[in-house]
């Protein structure tokens, strides 16, 4: 049962990839990347149950923080400021 849910969750990433490839503006692509990062955390959490390896949840926590920093950097680039401000 959980394996099926894991494959569905991985399949949801295709929606984000569609938006990243097709997105008419730069901001659409950035929204796709942001949501992709959150979906990966869900994949890590489900895999921690199905494979019974606890360290995958640590990877999930680290991924939250890294994707947050990445989103802020991309948003700052979008608003036209220098990155060292």
């Amino acid at each position: 049962m959980l394996e099926v849910l894991l494959y569905i969750q991985i399949g949801l990433c295709a929606f984000c990839l569609y938006r990243i490839i097709r997105g008419p503006t730069v901001a659409d692509r950035m929204v796709g990347i942001d949501i992709f990062g959150i979906l990966v955390v869900g994949i890590c959490a489900i895999m921690a149950i199905t494979t019974d390896r606890m360290f995958l949840l640590d990877i999930g926590i680290a991924w939250v923080i890294l994707s947050f920093i990445g989103t802020l950097t991309l948003a700052k680039y979008l608003s036209g400021k220098k990155l060292n401000e």
Partner: peptide, 28 residues
């Protein structure tokens, strides 16, 4: 407990990221 800690972390990361993206795309 690690999963429980990840919930508020994810929550604040997602909201602040959304503010930044909305404001950035409006300024762009």
């Amino acid at each position: 407990v690690k999963a429980l800690i990840a919930i508020p972390l994810l929550f604040f990361a997602a909201t602040v990221g959304a503010h930044a993206l909305v404001r950035g795309s409006h300024i762009a």
